[in-house]
Amino acid sequence: MIESLDPGTLYPFGGAALFALGLHGLIRRRHLILRILAVNIMGSGVFMVFLGIAARGDAPPDPVAQALTLTGIVVAVSATAFALALTVHLARLTGHAVLLPGPLRTHRGNRPEDP
């Protein structure tokens, strides 16, 4: 039982748990900042799975998986930076940083007085 729980299996499990945790946060929380954090946590979960896979077996860790994770982290930070900029822009326009699941504004234009 002990040797089956080496990092090669434990951390991918942890990564899967983080992915699910992030997904739960993304679905449940309405505030955009928290949703962006949730996406980052999901990303970290995936990277943990990747690095867990890299550390499998007693050979030295697999550099390709680690390089992919590094690329993933940089992609994640760029996406987060843009998401934050968009959140600020949205807040400047709508006055709040929350994506209300309210009625689709697409059907707002039915009445003639709609903008």
């Binding site: 955009l32 843009f82 949205l90 326009l93 709508t94």
Partner: peptide, 8 residues
């Protein structure tokens, strides 16, 4: 911008 955020 709302649509873009949801899309993102």
């Amino acid at each position: 911008v709302t649509g873009a955020m949801r899309y993102l």
